[in-house]
Design a protein around this nucleic acid. Structure first.
Length: 641
DNA sequence: GCGCCAACT
DNA sequence: GGAGTTGGCGC
C-alpha cells in the first residue's frame, strides 16, 4: 500500500492525465500499441510436481519431485530448500532430502496398447516403457477451464491461453470489467477532433493495491506520493482480476500459481517469476526501467538461446543496464535491422507482441530416445505401435471420433548421427485409428530404412500436425441458417475469429459486470452504467465494417443461471450463461466450413465426379457419441478425481 | 517439406 | 542436463 493521505487533494484542478482518449479507445479495441494495455502472465508453480501432489494428496510442505528414469523433471517448493534442483539425480536427491517423495511419471508399456499407468517399477523399465504426459495434459485442461470460467465472470470476451503457462489478454476484458462503468467521466462521446485530447485525471490520489501484491519499486525519478494516472488504475483492476483467477484455481483444484501483471507480455512474464510460489507481482509503467535494469537480458524471452549468446559476445555483457548505454547505431552495426530495433525496444520495456487467442493444439508428438540405440526394423516397429497408440489416444481427446478435428500430416523423425524427418499426408478419406497411424508410420520408416544408414538409431518419434476442423452433426448449418440476414454478412468475412469475438458484443450487459463490494467499487462511488456499453467509446475508426453488423446477432432468450449444459455438437461442458456465445461460435464455424466445403465440392466436381460429402464427415461412429472420460482410457478417472 | 531454434517441466 | 513436448521461423 502506498501512503494514503495525499498532501493536498486538488488545488490544481486543471491537471490532466498523460493519456488521451485515443489511447483509451485503443485499449477498448485490444490494440497492442496503447500504453494503457495490461497483460497478465499466470504460471503454475512447478506444475508437474503439483499435479502429483494433488493426485497423491500430499500437503504443501511435503518435499516431492517428479522423476523420469533417473532424473528429476520437476521439484516442488518444499524440496527446494534442501538444494534439490532438476539437475540432480534421484540418488543425490535422496541424500539431500531423505524423506522426499520421488514419483515417477506415468508410462506406456510395450504390449499394453495406449493405456498409461503409474507403475512402481517404471524407472527400471526404460527399455520397454515410454513416458506419458497425459495426466498433466488432463490437469492442464481442467485448470484452463477453471480460469476461463472465472474470467467469464468478469467479461464476455474470449480468453486467450497457452498450455501450462497462461497469458491472459486482459485489455478488452479489463475494459469490459467496468472501467467505463466505474468511471463515467470516460464515457464521453467523442468527435474526431478531440480524440487526442488528454483524459481527465483519475478521481483518486492513491490506488487501492491489494496488500498481498508485490509492487515493483518505481523508477528513480518517480515517487510513490505522486498522483496515479490511468495506467495505474488499469493495472490495479488487472491485478484484482488475476487474483480472483488464482483464487478460483486454488479453491477448486488446489493448484497454486504465480502471476505477473504489466503493460506487455515480456514484462508480465518476467514479473510472474519474481515471487514464486503463489504470489503476484505488478510492474507498473513507472517501474519498468528500474525493473529491467536488474536483469540479465538473457532472461528475456527470445534471448535465452543462441541470439542471447551472440549479443553477449558482441557487446561483452549480459546486463540490460550495460546494453542501455549502447546507441542504436551500434546495435545495428552488429545485428540485423529487425533484431537491433527489437532489442533496442525490449530492453526499454517495449514489446508489442500479441497474446495469441488460441487454445487448440497444433501438433502431437510421441518420442523416445534409445540408450543403447536400437538396430532393427522389428525393434523400431514396437515403438511405432506405442507412438501410434499414444497419439491416437490424444486425438480421441481432441475429438477425432466426433470429427471435430483431424490432422492432415504424419511425420516420422529418426536420428542416427543427425536427425532426419519424413512426412506424408494422412488420406482425408480414411478413418483415423491406431492401425492407420501405425501403418503410415511403418511406411515412413520403410522410406528411411531404404535410404540407408538407418542404424544404430538413437531417437525415434512420430507426430501428427496440420489439424483441420470438421463438423460433428449436420443439423447445425440449416438450423442456424434461419438467421439468414446475418449469414450473408458473415459468410463474406474471411476471419472467423473476429466474428467469434465481436458477436459476443451482443450479450446482455449484466453479464459483463462483476463489480463486487470489495474491489474497485469500494473506492469509487459512481454507480455502474447499465445498457449501451457498445456505443460509449467507439469512435469512427472501426476497422472491420462487416464485423460491426454482427452486433445485430439476436441474443434470444438469455437466462442467467449458474448451471451447465453439455453442448450436443462438440460435447463440451459449457456454463449455461455461455450458451449463447457458444452457439454463435458454432454458427460461425459452420459457415466457415460450409464455405470451404462448397469450394471443395466445386473443385471436385470440376475434376472428377466425387460426391462432396462421401468420404468423411458427419459420422458419429463408435461409442454413441460419448465425448469424454471414456472407460478405455479410464485410468484418468481414478486419479485427480 | 524439412531443419533448426527456443521454451518449458 | 536429458527426455519429452510444443510452437515458430526460414529457406
Amino acid at each position: 500500500m502506498s501512503s494514503a493521505d495525499p498532501p493536498n487533494a486538488s488545488p490544481d484542478a486543471v491537471k490532466h492525465s498523460r493519456y488521451t482518449f485515443r489511447q483509451l479507445h485503443l485499449l477498448r479495441q485490444g490494440s497492442t500499441a496503447t500504453p494503457l494495455r495490461a497483460i497478465a502472465h499466470i504460471d503454475l508453480d512447478a506444475f508437474y510436481a503439483q499435479c502429483e501432489m494433488v493426485r497423491l494428496g500430499t500437503d504443501r510442505d511435503t518435499p516431492l519431485a517428479v522423476r523420469q528414469w533417473d532424473s528429476l523433471i520437476a521439484v516442488n517448493y518444499a524440496a527446494r530448500p534442501s538444494g534439490i534442483t532438476r539437475m540432480v539425480t534421484t540418488a543425490e536427491a535422496r541424500k539431500l532430502c531423505p524423506n522426499i517423495i520421488l514419483q515417477h511419471v506415468a508410462t506406456f508399456r510395450e504390449g499394453e496398447g495406449g493405456r498409461w499407468a503409474y507403475r512402481d517399477d517404471s524407472f527400471k523399465n526404460i527399455r520397454t516403457d515410454k513416458v506419458s504426459l497425459d495426466p498433466y495434459r488432463a490437469e492442464s485442461r481442467k485448470i484452463l477451464k477453471t480460469m476461463k470460467e472465472e474470467l467469464e465472470q468478469w467479461s464476455s470476451e474470449a480468453v486467450d491461453e497457452e498450455i501450462q503457462s497462461l497469458t491472459l489478454g486482459l485489455s478488452a476484458c479489463l475494459e469490459k470489467a467496468g472501467i467505463d462503468e466505474v468511471y463515467p467521466e470516460l464515457r464521453q462521446n467523442l468527435q474526431d477532433d478531440n480524440r487526442d485530447a488528454e483524459l481527465p485525471p483519475p478521481p483518486t490520489t492513491a490506488i487501492p493495491w491489494d496488500a498481498r501484491d508485490s509492487l515493483i519499486e518505481l523508477d528513480k525519478h518517480e515517487r510513490e506520493e505522486d498522483d496515479p494516472d490511468w495506467d495505474d488504475v488499469v493495472m490495479q483492476i488487472a491485478a484484482e482480476i488475476v487474483r480472483s483467477v488464482r483464487t478460483a484455481v486454488w479453491n477448486q483444484l488446489h493448484y497454486t500459481c504465480s502471476a505477473g501483471v504489466a503493460r506487455n507480455k515480456m514484462l508480465a512474464k518476467l514479473g510472474s517469476a519474481c515471487n514464486k510460489p503463489n504470489a503476484q507481482t505488478i510492474v507498473r509503467n513507472r517501474a519498468v526501467q528500474f525493473f529491467l535494469n536488474g536483469y540479465k537480458f538473457t532472461q528475456i524471452r527470445m534471448l535465452g538461446g543462441k541470439l542471447g549468446e551472440q549479443i553477449t559476445s558482441d557487446f561483452g555483457t549480459e546486463q540490460v543496464i550495460d546494453l542501455l548505454g549502447i546507441p542504436y547505431e551500434q546495435l545495428r552495426a552488429k545485428l540485423d535491422d529487425h533484431t537491433a530495433t527489437w532489442l533496442y525496444g525490449v530492453i526499454r520495456g517495449e514489446d508489442r507482441s500479441e497474446v495469441n487467442p488460441r487454445t487448440q493444439i497444433k501438433s502431437m508428438l510421441s518420442a523416445k530416445s534409445f540408450r543403447p540405440s536400437i538396430n532393427s526394423v522389428e525393434q523400431a516397429e514396437k515403438w511405432l505401435h506405442i507412438f501410434a497408440a499414444d497419439i491416437y489416444g490424444r486425438l480421441v481427446e481432441d475429438g477425432v471420433l466426433e470429427n471435430r478435428r483431424r490432422p492432415r500430416v504424419i511425420t516420422l523423425y529418426h536420428r542416427v548421427a543427425q536427425s532426419r524427418s519424413r512426412q506424408i499426408p494422412i488420406p482425408g478419406s480414411s478413418k483415423i485409428d491406431e492401425d492407420l497411424l501405425f501403418e503410415l508410420a511403418k511406411k515412413l520408416l520403410g522410406q528411411v530404412v531404404a535410404e540407408g544408414q538407418a542404424w544404430p538409431c538413437s531417437n525415434l518419434s512420430l507426430s501428427v500436425s496440420s489439424f483441420e476442423d470438421g463438423v460433428s452433426k449436420n443439423k447445425a448449418i440449416e438450423g442456424f441458417l434461419v438467421r439468414g440476414d446475418q449469414a450473408k454478412v458473415i459468410s463474406q468475412s474471411t476471419r472467423i475469429r473476429e466474428i467469434d469475438s465481436t458477436s459476443k458484443e451482443a450479450l446482455p450487459a449484466e453479464k459483463k459486470r462483476r463489480v463486487d463490494g470489495g474491489g474497485i467499487k469500494r473506492f469509487f462511488t459512481h454507480s455502474p452504467f447499465p445498457g449501451d456499453s457498445s456505443s460509449a467509446l467507439v469512435g469512427n475508426e472501426s476497422p472491420q465494417p462487416a464485423d460491426q453488423d454482427l452486433t445485430n446477432v439476436p441474443s434470444g432468450d438469455f437466462e442467467p443461471t449458474l448451471s451447465q449444459y453439455t453442448c450436443d455438437r462438440c460435447s463440451k461442458v459449457i456454463p449455461e450463461d455461455g450458451r449463447e456465445e457458444h452457439d454463435d461460435w458454432h454458427f460461425a464455424k459452420d459457415l466457415e466450413l460450409q464455405d470451404r466445403q462448397e469450394a471443395i465440392s466445386i473443385q471436385q466436381q470440376s475434376q472428377q465426379q466425387t460426391p462432396p460429402h462421401s468420404a468423411r464427415g458427419i459420422s458419429t461412429r463408435g461409442r454413441g457419441g460419448r465425448g469424454r472420460g471414456k472407460p478405455e482410457r479410464g485410468q484418468k478417472r481414478l486419479f485427480f478425481q
